[in-house]
Design a protein around this nucleic acid. Sequence first.
DNA 1: ATTTTGTATTGACACTGTCAAGATAAATTT
DNA 2: AAATTTATCTTGACAGTGTCAATACAAAAT
Lengths: 198, 198
Amino acid sequence: MPSLDKKPYHHGELREALLVAGEAALGDLSPENVSLREIARRAGVSHAAPKHHFQTLGELLGEIAARGFDRFVETLQTAANGGANQSAAARLQTMSRAYLRFAELNPAVYGLMFGKRERCVTTPNLAKASLAAWSQLETAVAAIVGPQKAINGALLVWSSVHGMAQLRIDRKLPPHIDPQSSLEAVMRMIVAGLQAET
Amino acid sequence: MPSLDKKPYHHGELREALLVAGEAALGDLSPENVSLREIARRAGVSHAAPKHHFQTLGELLGEIAARGFDRFVETLQTAANGGANQSAAARLQTMSRAYLRFAELNPAVYGLMFGKRERCVTTPNLAKASLAAWSQLETAVAAIVGPQKAINGALLVWSSVHGMAQLRIDRKLPPHIDPQSSLEAVMRMIVAGLQAET
DNA sequence: ATTTTGTATTGACACTGTCAAGATAAATTT
DNA sequence: AAATTTATCTTGACAGTGTCAATACAAAAT
């Protein structure tokens, strides 16, 4: 009978445990307090143990960002599918709501995903997931303005929603603004702007 | 005759010198390498000298952000004044161009100004300058849609331009997009969206 | 059963922000 | 003018960080 809870010398699933602990730390702590040593501590392991699974802190954070992006793309896809029988404009609005919701629920990971890559390393599948998200958006916009104008239209939508998410996360919106309700009005204007372009 | 270049024990203008050195460091180095000690080094002073002028690194960065905001508001004002004889829509476009240009010329300071306040402390005049910028924008937008819808309109404009600036700074725009020329198209759509709201 | 391989620990290095104690010079008071 | 106070800067320390090298350990392969 193997000892029940004496932790073995070899963790066994450390790589996974570090990713989980890292994401948890990003949720609890302010970002600059998320250190490699803190994550190791949370995983119940020595400070240099991560070295065998992630060369640097940046690599660990990069992997967390990549996983976040996967969930993000899924979320958008689910929203798009859910609104399949709606109008193109309504579908875009549904996706935007899902986008903002994701950013609010995962502010730290969102920051990692979209922030400058100084804290986390850009892995290939991170870049891939990023492009996937973009073309999702472009498709949804193309359904409104046609493929011709889709690029600039998608840029408008992405900039707006990303900007709003960022301003909200960073608490830079004037206090008299309720982003929840404002989003609807903003999205209405965006759609109007897109349709004017056709 | 005072010795020409022997540095005196008392710097004399250290507070100012630290702000200048700090801003320079933000320009040269990647942000996480901008340390208090590095700034002190650049100002030719010992590592703990800043303590008498700024209690923490956050205070120093906060002051740099506040000054950046002052320049930012000035820049927007100049743009607005320059386009005084233009249409309200054209004036808004001029301001947006100036906004983006500022963000591109001062990416690090811009990040400090609009990022979450974990690295720099929010001083009162920082908050004031931030609100000033917002009402500038609201005024420009009100000239198009009227005061009634100005709030949501300003939110749309700010989100879009801020989002675009952020995406550009963080190099998250797909490579096939030229933000310089896209801005014009995006602003056209935004104005159209605003005008549809009237 | 022995070797090899992968994993985790310990200890070290240079760096960070901040604090406390001292040195120095300028400003103020006497 | 001399003495004292005040503001500024330096030095040294502490706990924390990321990363590397050397070492202990256990599982897998021979």
